Amino acid sequence: MPTRRPDPARCLPSAEAQASRFARQREADRAATAEDYVELIADLIREEKEARAVVIARRMGVSQATVTATVARLQRDGLVETQPYRGLFLTEAGQQMAAAARARHELLVRFLIALGLDAETAEQDAEGLEHHVSDKALAVFGKFLEGR
């Protein structure tokens, strides 16, 4: 009787490899909030000509205090600018982040639909996946879509 080889998908990775994977996911989780906010701010500016904290709070399903704290962090990180008695504005870096997040989202939606998922579920699932998928995977998804 032949000896069975262990299934690589079931083998525990090295401690360094596993730590690296978890660190990447923690960083993606931290970046997800910033990406969601700048993407929403860009969408609001495009559609409604302004982005206000009260609207962001309603659309994100969070309190205005949460939006205020997050916007302060985004401002500190050079992604958002505020002006007294006016809405929020994206810096060049914020605009670039929003465009990249939007492109990832749209690619993932198209990919999931191409695999047979309905549009509503694809939109919902892409919202979480867009922050955690690697650039390498996105390139493969894009190639797949080009070949269809």
Rank of each mutant, 00 (worst) to 15 (best):
residue 58 R to E: 13
residue 96 Q to P: 09
residue 148 R to Y: 02
residue 12 L to Y: 09
residue 103 A to V: 06
residue 99 A to L: 05
residue 98 A to M: 10
residue 88 L to K: 15
residue 100 A to V: 07
residue 59 R to M: 13
residue 29 D to S: 14
residue 79 L to F: 14
residue 106 E to V: 07
residue 54 V to M: 08
residue 90 L to N: 11
residue 16 E to I: 06
residue 135 D to V: 10
residue 97 M to W: 03
residue 52 R to G: 11
residue 44 L to E: 15
residue 83 Q to L: 09
residue 25 Q to W: 06
residue 74 L to F: 04
residue 100 A to E: 14
residue 141 F to Y: 12
residue 102 R to Q: 14
residue 105 H to V: 00
residue 102 R to K: 15
residue 22 F to D: 09
residue 78 G to K: 04
residue 28 A to M: 08
residue 52 R to F: 12
residue 128 G to K: 00
residue 86 R to D: 09
residue 63 S to A: 03
residue 76 R to E: 14
residue 110 R to E: 11
residue 18 Q to D: 10
residue 120 E to Y: 01
residue 26 R to T: 06
residue 127 E to N: 03
residue 11 C to E: 15
residue 127 E to V: 00
residue 6 P to C: 00
residue 52 R to K: 09
residue 53 A to L: 11
residue 63 S to M: 02
residue 133 V to S: 01
residue 106 E to T: 15
residue 79 L to W: 13
residue 49 K to H: 12
residue 107 L to W: 06
residue 47 E to V: 08
residue 30 R to P: 07
residue 33 T to N: 07
residue 7 D to Q: 01
residue 80 V to L: 15
residue 99 A to P: 09
residue 7 D to N: 04
residue 47 E to N: 13
residue 24 R to H: 11
residue 106 E to L: 13
residue 24 R to V: 05
residue 135 D to S: 13
residue 129 L to G: 01
residue 102 R to T: 11
residue 32 A to I: 08
residue 98 A to T: 15
residue 96 Q to W: 03
residue 26 R to D: 14
residue 48 E to M: 06
residue 110 R to M: 03
